[in-house]
Design a protein around this nucleic acid. Structure first.
Lengths: 231, 231
DNA sequence: TCTCATAGTGTCTTTTGTACATTAAAAACG
DNA sequence: CGTTTTTAATGTACAAAAGACACTATGAGA
């Protein structure tokens, strides 16, 4: 019935992470320079190999750390890619993860000691293997998640303004929203706590800062399928 | 920078498929008996090993065919599982797929020559490894998809009635719906074509049969993210 | 022809989405 | 110091969708 273990072919397992960032204006993607190709420079997602004692997410986090110094990033599994010829050197199955981070929080860390670099989503270079396909899938997933969860907060500083949040959503969906409707919709979730403090410097009037109400935020996350009507 | 290919550990890649079926009344899951455990009988998802020349989905489809005789089943990738100890015999990464089929269409094929068997979702036996987790994830995904796409049609015969479709959705969501609202909502998609023919035998009055308007159905499928408002 | 099981349908109410324009605050500049 | 400029903040009316709810229609079988 089931074929035996020893008769089976083994293959390499790679972990590739799509890291999205937001700099307050544009949606960005974190890439590393790859030395394999010679003439034209090729960039790659944060990628590496699974080790014998690692779980998949654990491995993706370790690789991300090695390439960028980033830790404690929430990674979410996206999809697995396993076309026989996707890596021409050797048969490899790649499990893709994606994550959202706030560019400014991590800027120094990344650019100092590593070969990683942020690219605007509108100006992506050529990517290794099927990484472009991974990115396209990740952006779709990001959009989907952003409609269901208030996930975008991950991309912003701890304290943020409604106009900043709107800019982020506009970057994710590559569109614009009416600010009255946007703010009404966001505030109606009751996930934001308005602070008594205004953002300085960016506008003359200054916008109120908000933080996420973490208790409620977790609850919403866990009740993923609540949007299904009971009737 | 990136570690070299030859230094890497290889591991087995398994494909496991969660096959949902509907018999007109209950949601069911297709399982195969596993000979590995000795005293208590253990059941397993449709699973097997990736071969060197196969893509992931291709491999899942081939395995499904070998275990059940089923062909031309639409498989969708669900998630990959790779905890180091998930298979105690040897390190294995499993890529899970799921599919929906109409139990009655395939009943003879399956039960005659294979060790596969349908189980009610309410009476699942003990499952191998982390297969239970895979099933739980698949049911969540099925529910999600059923809210977004009119995917449930896959589980019904070509010609079906609105009450049948409602029973299916009620089985998927383990709830009940108001039949007036349900039929209004379904018909408002304009995906169904009403036939001039009634179902015989089940009820005295007999319900009108419908088929899916395949042109429109494909269109809807392709415009996955249309539910995102443009404002 | 009466009974019984299931099919089929309409209306009112509530909620949600969308379009749209004015006032408020504060910095910068003359 | 008041005028200009930029961004923030807010409300209302209309349209669309979702939800609650009850009666009539059909036809088989007793």
């Amino acid at each position: 019935m089931l074929e035996q273990y020893q008769a089976q072919v083994k293959c390499l397992v790679a972990l590739d992470s799509i890291i999205f960032g937001f700099d307050g204006d544009e949606l960005k993607l974190l890439l590393v320079k790859r030395g394999i190709e010679e003439n034209d420079v090729t960039w790659s997602l944060m990628g590496g190999w699974l080790r014998p004692d690692e779980g998949l997410e654990e491995s993706a986090a370790r690789i991300l750390f090695q390439l960028t110094g980033l830790t404690n990033i929430y990674l979410e599994q996206l999809y697995s890619f396993g076309a026989p010829q996707r890596d021409p050197v050797e048969r490899t199955v790649a499990v893709a993860y994606f994550a959202l981070i706030n560019v400014n929080d991590y800027q120094e860390k990344i650019s100092d000691s590593y070969e990683a670099q942020w690219f605007s989503m509108h100006e992506l270079p050529n990517l290794l293997f099927d990484h472009r396909q991974m990115v396209d899938m990740a952006i779709r997933q990001l959009r989907y998640k952003a409609t269901q969860h208030p996930i975008g907060f991950e991309l912003l500083p701890e304290k943020f303004t409604i106009p900043q949040l709107q800019k982020l959503y506009e970057a994710i969906f590559a569109t614009t929203f009416d600010k009255r409707n946007f703010s009404r919709k966001i505030l109606s979730t009751n996930l934001l706590i308005k602070l008594d403090e205004k953002q300085k410097g960016f506008s003359k009037k200054g916008a109120y800062l908000y933080i996420v109400d973490n208790t409620r935020y977790q609850q919403q996350f866990n009740s993923f399928l609540n949007f299904i009507s009971s009737n």
